[in-house]
Design a protein around this nucleic acid. Structure first.
Lengths: 297, 297
DNA sequence: CAGAGGCATAACGCCAGCTTATGACCTCAG
DNA sequence: CTGAGGTCATAAGCTGGCGTTATGCCTCTG
């Protein structure tokens, strides 16, 4: 199901947010580097397509109507998400004149880092960040080798030669499709969970290791081994079985009802930690990013 | 600061998500009702602009690369937010062949309802929802008069003639600008809070009423009275003083560091309740929406 | 009463992006 | 080994959306 064309292009909504902030269509146009008539037409077209009146236009400027304010607040969420996407992509891009290099494990890179980077960028407008997404072992290696200043790792291991500080705790959730027998269970005991083959990532993934450790398993026998979280979610939603995933990864699906979380008797959680070279003191943007990560905890 | 042009248009990212799900550029093109070359060109252009390789193209289809999967996950967040925006707008639009009419107070309409409606639409693909955003008293009146089947209200009042069930609890947060004297305080006592004029909504707003009740005030003297949550946030961020706002309304600002939450000795919270006519039984989409709201709690 | 600031309308030109048609490539079946 | 079917890339041509400048009208201010 493709995105409705109404919202595929966010520039109109972005313009609306500028009008809300600046109080005039003309000033919003200036901020967006377009002519005033272009902005005026764009906003009018937006109103026409939504079938809503968003602005009170007066000779002294423009203000939002009630519905305009409501739409603007929803739009802000979408624009912020797009902004986080842009920031993440910019960091992923290998820029050779980078200023801060960061490495992060999959879960952190996917779900936590983008808003942190948006906040960091607010504090350091000109800063370029490069991000390397890798598994926890590679992150540790990159920090040790000095390729990145700061790393974020998951899982139980204590990396040698690194100073580690917990910045967040990630709960792991057992998820199944709504039609799965477990979907209506009050609870699934640790023993039953340990005895059930799951849809999971490849051996050595941070999520899988944390799960194996929590259940005291040396190596869990997988029902199906897939290489990405997304693939696992789809397989489970299609009824392939149960999976253990970061709760951060399944909020949207739980909200939509595509997946159902099953309560368990086990505390499935793991710490997400910031790591840097032991003995070193974090400075500049790296220090700020660490502070932001702690603050968001 | 306008949105980077890279992400202003989400169609490319949306297409990427379809490719991830369907495994082929051509099928994604079909789903989006465009020709295969158009989709191919669009994805290639996306890769060019991001400076990243997102797809493995093979004669048997296309799959995401590692960075492609990462970008796709971030993109999914943005696309979902845009989808919530579209759903909210569609519900706001007065459609005359509506099927489910809902009224909600400001906080619920702004922050909670869009994802609920997205989930509801997943269960009822053809359903048209109309939404009326109003204050709690008007919501109750609309339900009583039968203009809407289901309402969502906030605040302490028990609406006469209506059956009410709590669907969520909203914490109120005391927020100030980072430079405000309170920003570094460990705690602000109830008495001090009650004695301090705040930036607030007009008398009678749900948030303001809940705050007055929690502090045992008949009527709080405002420092500044503004008509929208957004205006209040900006005024506070600019250093105008302190405000009490729904924690739902300030998550983004707290994350970005624009605003700072001040711990207080008072339990500032209020219930958000679903209401329908006493004696009636919820049926059909209204019943499902209520269930979704409870599930998201 | 004049000027400034704000939004709308008009006229025009350009380029982005879509479509159809076709080609190149791989895989698999017989 | 060979042909069919599926996938993606390239080419060429056209349309129309969108932005620009120029201008007019309105309202509030001094």
């Amino acid at each position: 199901m493709p995105l409705p064309p109404l919202v595929a292009d966010l520039t109109g909504f972005d313009l609306l947010l500028s009008v809300a902030r600046l109080g005039s269509v003309g000033r919003a146009a200036t901020e967006h580097r377009v002519s005033q008539p272009a902005a005026s037409a764009k906003l009018r077209e937006l109103e026409r397509r939504l079938g809503l009146t968003l602005l009170h236009r007066t000779p002294r400027g423009s203000t939002l109507t009630g519905t305009g304010a409501l739409v603007a607040d929803w739009a802000r969420t979408a624009v912020d998400a797009a902004d986080a996407l842009a920031t993440g992509v910019a960091a992923l891009r290998v820029t050779h004149e980078s200023r801060l290099a960061v490495a992060a494990s999959q879960t952190v890179a996917e779900y936590l880092l983008p808003p942190w980077l948006v906040a960091l960028r607010a504090a350091h407008p000109g800063l370029t960040v490069t991000l390397q997404a890798a598994n926890s072992a590679d992150v540790a290696a990159a920090v040790l080798a000095g390729r990145v200043e700061l790393g974020f790792v998951e899982g139980p291991d204590q990396p040698a030669g690194l100073h580690a500080e917990t910045v967040a705790t990630d709960r792991l959730a057992v998820v199944v499709a709504p039609g799965h027998p477990w979907a209506r269970r009050r609870s699934v005991a640790a023993a039953e969970l340990a005895a059930t083959p799951l849809v999971s990532r490849e051996a050595g993934s941070g999520t899988r290791r944390a799960y194996e450790e929590a259940l005291g398993l040396a190596q869990a026998a997988p029902l199906l081994e897939l290489s990405s979280t997304t693939a696992i979610k789809h397989a489970v939603a299609a009824g392939s079985g149960a999976a253990v995933l970061s709760s951060l990864a399944v909020t949207a699906e739980l909200a939509a009802g595509t997946l159902v979380a099953v309560p368990t008797g086990v505390a499935l959680q793991r710490r997400l930690r910031a790591v840097w070279k032991a003995g070193d003191q974090l400075t500049g943007p790296a220090r700020d990013l660490y502070a932001i990560a702690r603050r968001h905890r």
